[in-house]
Amino acid sequence: MPPVTATRCVDFEERRDRAMALFAEKGFGQVSMRELAAHIGLTAGSLYHHFPSKQDLLYDLIEELYEELQATLEQGRRAMARGESALSCLIAAHWQLHAERPLQFRLAERDICCLSEQQQMQLALLRERYEARLLSMIAPQASLQGDARMATAHVVANLLNQLPAMLKRLPEQQGLGLMESLLLGGIERTLR
């Protein structure tokens, strides 16, 4: 196997981006492996070498997004260590991530149902871990337990992950400020 070079990594990233764009444009279920291979500049056989199925590619794209979301929590932890607001840092990090990966957010919301049950369960575990860490970071005194705590974490995560798309027409600082106001207001009222 030839060594991994910067050019090969860039080619792979560009192909993944083209695959995401095709899935986002046509819908995951409407794209065949042959069409996908042609769209990204590979033969079908070569594509199958990298990904045994479209579902495996979609799973990798969504899993990568959850890994990036976990990394935003690390940014929030570092902000807290510096005495800064974790929530402000997390809002900015989610805004930036959404700007960099809007198609992955769309695929994660819209096409996760196209994955196998096992893949959906694995992603659900990643999401639950992310949501639990998120809520513990921004509302450590929350007295909610069980299903109420999980539901609150889910709502807060959804707001962080969907508001950037809803507010993208606003200037960045205005959008960030509005997100912070919405989240702070909701968190304060819910977690009293």
Rank of each mutant, 00 (worst) to 15 (best):
V10P: 10
A93V: 02
G177H: 15
P171V: 06
Y130T: 01
L144Y: 10
E67R: 09
L107S: 04
L97H: 10
L125I: 10
M33E: 15
F51L: 03
L135D: 00
L36C: 05
L167A: 08
Y59P: 13
S53L: 02
F105K: 01
R82F: 07
R106A: 13
E131S: 14
M1H: 13
V4Y: 04
K168Y: 08
R129D: 03
S85C: 05
S136H: 15
M150W: 01
D17N: 15
A86S: 15
I187S: 06
Y59W: 15
L123Q: 09
C89I: 03
A151F: 13
F12D: 13
V10M: 15
S85R: 07
L144F: 12
H49N: 13
I62Y: 00
T152M: 12
M150R: 15
A38Y: 01
E180G: 13
H154F: 06
P3H: 11
T5F: 06
Y130A: 01
G76D: 07
T152H: 05
P171G: 10
A139K: 01
L125P: 03
I62R: 00
S181P: 02
K168E: 12
Q104N: 03
L191N: 05
S116C: 11
F51V: 03
E100L: 14
T5L: 03
M33Q: 13
A165N: 08
R149G: 00
W95V: 07
Q75G: 14
E188S: 11
G27C: 02
E84Q: 14
L22A: 02
L57G: 08
L58G: 04
Q173W: 07
A19E: 01
C9F: 09
E131D: 11
Q118G: 12
L90D: 05
